[in-house]
Design a binder for these strands. Structure first.
Lengths: 228, 228
DNA sequence: GCATTCAGCGAACACTCGTTCACCGAAACC
DNA sequence: GGTTTCGGTGAACGAGTGTTCGCTGAATGC
């Protein structure tokens, strides 16, 4: 039912099992089965988390939904927190390809803004469960998961700051200011994604319009900015 | 240990019990006891929620921490969600007095920004448990609580939009644009409060500095804004 | 003074939960 | 071919859960 945003090559979940000479770990019909079970667990959890919190989730609940016995869970994860961290990584795995897609044809700032909002809206529409999960757990009760989200978003801001260094308006800014602006944009985009996923279809267009305007206003401010 | 941000007059938790002619419901030593128990439940829950999620909280857990028997809980709340909604209301009860305090001596925009950040930082330092609770439950798994937070923040944005109508820079804007700007500010402030509460003492100053810069940039943008 | 109210209690009911254990059977290895 | 590996199982453990019940005893109403 729910698939990860990106298959995420995932070289091998069990790095010690590399048996041979080259890189191919012998596809093995058994490894495939294990992978399938693991995916079933992740998908089942993601589905349940649409209406629930990770701290309220139970091992038994997940295994029941995935069609495994409770004990089977521990063959894949030590913990529900561990599973949560994997979901975070999957959720944010293709942020980077998304941002690069937006900046690919470097055009007007206005154009970049429009494209960003489009990409976000499309992503939210395509993977609502992952977005909802992120919204819930970004400040949720499970520390490892919270930390994973924070780390991933920080990397994203870093990347965006790097791209701002190449934009004409911000190229000559001090790095700290670029970072500040990048954080402002990231925060705005995250908030937007969360708002979109919780809104029902009718409100989405208005939200997109509002955020476009807000981003334009921020961009306008940054054009008139001079570093202190 | 933890006290509400504002005593919040709370006319009567049981409106059907108004016995007499006027407004005074006969102070009654018994009502006071009941109130105390209710407060103990709220405070105990708030304390437990610093490290936990509302969906992971248990009735027994709360009553144990509050020093009541499990059955006693149901004399005050039907549900943990109901208790959660009360906590939301307490958490945001004095947003309005805060914002009015900031705008009281209407000065330069830069000054308003500095004062806002100060007020937020002070509030976070004084009531961290309430802020943490809001962060957790704003997108948490308990719908009634989520809705309560959203409603309260919308009221806040509305109020801020009203104040912007009196500011020189934004007085002649269309109402929709003022509302958009207000939402941008509110969102930025909420994010800041959450960041502050999760940061440790050393990082706080840097966060405050960053948000001050970001708000200045937004303000700069809004000065150069002309309604489309 | 007496009857009433009602916040709080202890016990009980019927669950669900996380986790461990020995064990099975098919794939992988040699 | 036989042996080893290992993902998955069913049963069992003790512990914790939400909620209801009838009771108590002190504060209230008269």
């Amino acid at each position: 039912m729910t698939t990860p945003p990106d298959p995420a090559p995932d070289p091998s979940s069990d790095p010690a099992s590399d048996p041979g000479s080259a890189s191919a770990p012998a596809p093995g019909a058994r490894q495939a089965q294990k992978r399938a079970s693991r995916r079933a667990l992740l998908d089942a959890a993601l589905g349940l988390l649409e209406r629930q919190n990770l701290s309220g989730l139970g091992v038994r609940e997940v295994t029941r939904a995935a069609g495994l016995s409770p004990a089977g869970f521990y063959r894949h994860f030590a913990d529900l927190a561990e599973l949560g961290v994997v979901l975070v990584e999957e959720s944010l795995a293709n942020l980077h390809v998304m941002v690069r897609a937006v900046f690919a044809g470097s055009g007007e700032a206005e154009l970049l803004i429009d494209r960003s909002v489009e990409v976000i809206a499309a992503h939210v529409a395509e993977h609502p469960a992952y977005i909802r999960f992120l919204a819930r757990e970004r400040h949720g009760g499970v520390k490892p998961v919270r930390d994973a989200v924070a780390a991933e978003l920080a990397r994203f801001a870093e990347e965006l700051a790097g791209l701002l260094a190449v934009q004409p308006d911000t190229a000559d800014w001090p790095a700290a200011d670029r970072r500040m602006l990048a954080e402002l944009y990231v925060d705005r985009m995250v908030s937007t994604a969360l708002a979109l996923v919780e809104a029902d279809a009718g409100e989405r267009a208005a939200i997109a319009r509002t955020v476009r305007t807000q981003l334009r206003l921020i961009n306008l401010g940054s054009r008139h900015w001079r570093a202190s």
